[in-house]
Design a protein around this nucleic acid. Structure first.
Lengths: 122, 122
DNA sequence: GGCGTACGATTACATTTGTAGTCATACGGG
DNA sequence: CCCGTATGACTACAAATGTAATCGTACGCC
């Protein structure tokens, strides 16, 4: 379990986290905007996600409805910690510093983060 | 250029960002603590990094000294943006929120981030 | 000066990933 | 009741990755 989800697979997961359950055709349709995969490719990704226990299926007539078997929050938490561990020794502040230096922080972003921290201190 | 650096390769880069320039044997020694690769494996990773233009070499007698061809800050910036784009739609605050919720923020971390933001607002 | 040896270079090979084509089959329309 | 077709399963295959062995060679020791 907790098999690694690849980038392409992740794109499929995002669609399902947003609108599960969906059948393959539907997932393909929703991905068409961002990716130029064929339906066959999407089906391969779906199969792999099922065997990785990241998706579960439910038969609906002769097709499947797919839905996530893991919460997006859990996935994101795992990925985030892995990432911050790898690049910043597990500490979040250097990442923030990094964003600060590269001018990628909007005033709203700053305000939101401050609000979050205020919340934490209470 | 800007070829993708894999996880294993990244571990090698970290050693060199810390103590460049080093020869293969030395890099291998320093990696022994964290990884159980053979010297041959480390040499393969070094070659791949050189062909990806992530490292440059300098002959020293009949061996090479390796040193990074890209700054760690540049690499980290790229990876961070890619990551935040992929998982948080490019906004940093949800990542902070995520860390906040999973209780992975130490008081010192919070203080450091606040200081950073204060700095930014000036 | 021949030889072992320490290097980088080359080759190897399994697994994962990206991308897609083909196959078997069950269902619905005529 | 047969047939086309939509669907999941299976197969394909190149590139990247993880991991390592082997090869050719130049250098320094005896």
């Amino acid at each position: 379990m907790a098999e690694r989800i690849s980038d392409a697979e992740h794109a499929v997961m995002e669609v399902l986290w947003d609108h599960a359950p969906l059948d393959a055709q539907n997932i393909y349709d929703r991905l068409s905007g961002s990716q130029s995969w064929t339906l066959a490719t999407v089906k391969t990704l779906l199969s792999r996600l099922v065997s990785k226990d990241a998706l579960v299926t439910q038969a609906q007539g002769r097709k499947f409805l797919y839905r996530p078997a893991i919460e997006r929050t859990a996935y994101v938490a795992g990925e985030s910690h892995r990432f911050v561990d790898r690049l910043f020794g597990g500490k979040l502040s250097p990442l923030v510093a990094q964003f600060a230096e590269s001018e990628k922080l909007s005033p709203e972003d700053i305000a939101e983060i401050e609000a979050l921290l205020q919340e934490l201190k209470k």
